[in-house]
């Protein structure tokens, strides 16, 4: 499934709910599915510090694909993180870097991404893109070196 398709699928799932509590219940469920981040990664190196909640993000490149592991101490934030990981993780860096993320807005959770909300999510989304760009550049360099 492409990033676009994956996002549309999530939008479809959330469209079934018009009560906020149901949406949150789903996010809580999703947060439980997210594999917990090992304690060794919960360090300042991977921490995105924000006023309201804390978020950790660990990137890893395996066989040309970029994987994300992430966590938060707030469950609703963690639920959204689970969605982000589901959409972005395990893809080629170029694909992650190029695609627009629109699903958070469309399922009505964009308030969680407002810069004044200061929960670390906005910074995390930016950081995911930055990692993708950095790994993309690294891969391209390796390729051009290999071609010489």
């Amino acid at each position: 499934m492409t990033i676009q398709e994956k996002q549309k699928q999530i939008i479809g799932e959330f469209a079934e709910f018009d009560d906020w509590m149901d949406k949150y219940d789903l996010l809580i469920e999703l947060s439980k599915d997210l594999s917990p981040l090992e304690a060794k990664f919960k360090t300042d190196e991977f921490l995105i510090k924000a006023c309201q909640s804390r978020v950790w993000l660990v990137p890893e490149l395996i066989d040309g694909k970029l994987y994300f592991r992430a966590d938060s101490d707030a469950i609703i934030v963690k639920g959204i993180i689970a969605l982000l990981v589901d959409v972005l993780s395990g893809r080629e860096p170029a694909e992650i870097a190029q695609n627009e993320l629109f699903f958070i807005d469309q399922i009505g959770l964009s308030e969680n991404l407002s810069p004044t909300r200061s929960n670390g999510l906005l910074a995390m989304v930016k950081q995911m893109k930055l990692y993708a760009l950095a790994f993309q550049a690294q891969l391209e360099k390796q390729q051009s070196n290999g071609n010489e």
């Binding site: 101490d73 469950i75 200061s118």
Partner: peptide, 22 residues
């Protein structure tokens, strides 16, 4: 075991305005 952000977010959806954080 419940983060204040989660409490604040859900209360908001119930129409209740509180402040969370430091």
């Amino acid at each position: 075991n419940i983060h204040q952000y989660d409490v604040g977010m859900v209360l908001d959806k119930l129409g209740i305005a509180v402040r969370t954080g430091t």
